[in-house]
Design a protein around this nucleic acid. Structure first.
Ligand SMILES: [Zn+2]
Ligand SMILES: [Zn+2]
Ligand SMILES: [Zn+2]
Ligand SMILES: [Zn+2]
Lengths: 152, 152
DNA sequence: TTTCCTCTTGCAACTGAGTGTCAACAGTGT
DNA sequence: ACACTGTTGACACTCAGTTGCAAGAGGAAA
């Protein structure tokens, strides 16, 4: 569910190279992990997956590569309402922004695209004369399966 | 102990007491700091302000009290797009949710209420059958004064 | 007011994500 | 192949936040 299947693998690598950045073995590995991820991964999970491909990779390189991708707007950083500690999660930046909903009971993460959200961003840019670079809308609550039995 | 015990309790204090929670000297102090804050404060800043009133207060007590207020939905936790490291900021939960905009150049934080945002939340609850407890919409970009001279 | 129970605090030690430094290494263009 | 320069890995470090526990203090009942 995280990523649209219409995306071509290797797009991140192509983007970085077109920006004149060096394509190292480690970066290729980390990029492929991020690109093929089936859920939102944190830095430690990305490291673990990358080490299955290249066991020598250091966690510092993962942090640096994620910072690079974020700086170039190729990935988005998520907090997922801090439900799993203070980790940050990452996903390839989609063509269209989406909302992340986190169920406070079962922990499920759902995604939702909305025309109202797009219009809201337009309103912000217009009414506040604010040039939007990145947005993060996270919602905590109870999913349909959990809402009948909410705690206190 | 030099503390205004007879003072009329603030809304936060009243809320906690109505929930049957013990009102300690430390909690009164921290609550008053949060309630009278003029900007978004992080835990360390709240501790510093609280120690001006009661120098004995420990930082652990600040963390525990903030967790308590958050658990009871009386304050909201903000990331402010991680512009100042990984700290979290806090503000009293307002009657109406608002959006936080962070200028990536000058660091200014702006707030914005929007009917579209309220409608978007309604749409999420309806279309996703998701019971919303808390939302966090943060936007990073360039404010009107900085947008003419954006870096790289 | 005093007692008593229970919740809360303070301290210290700990966790764990993320950063800074720097020598060695390896892309990339020539 | 060479040289230039950006990148990596190892290690130590930072720093926000947490945990465990003994001592302290709300608060209600006696
Ligand atoms: Zn997502
Ligand atoms: Zn659920
Ligand atoms: Zn965060
Ligand atoms: Zn600005």
């Amino acid at each position: 569910m995280p990523f649209p299947q219409t995306e071509v693998p290797g797009r991140l690598q192509a983007e970085l190279m077109s920006r004149g950045l060096r394509m190292t073995r480690q970066r290729r590995t980390i990029l492929s992990v991020v690109e093929t991820a089936k859920q939102h991964l944190d830095a430690a999970q990305i490291l673990r997956h990358a080490r299955k491909i290249d066991p020598q990779i250091d966690r510092v390189t993962v942090y640096r590569t994620l910072a690079l991708l974020k700086r170039h707007g190729l990935i988005d950083e998520l907090d997922l309402m801090h439900m799993q500690g203070e980790k940050h999660f990452y996903e390839r930046r989609p063509q269209r922004d989406h909302i992340h909903m986190a169920c406070l009971r079962c922990g499920k993460i759902m995604e939702f695209e909305s025309d109202l959200f797009d219009r809201l961003k337009g309103q912000i840019q217009r009414d506040c004369q604010f040039h939007i670079v990145v947005t993060r809308l996270e919602v905590g609550g109870y999913c349909s399966r959990c809402r009948t039995a909410k705690p206190d």
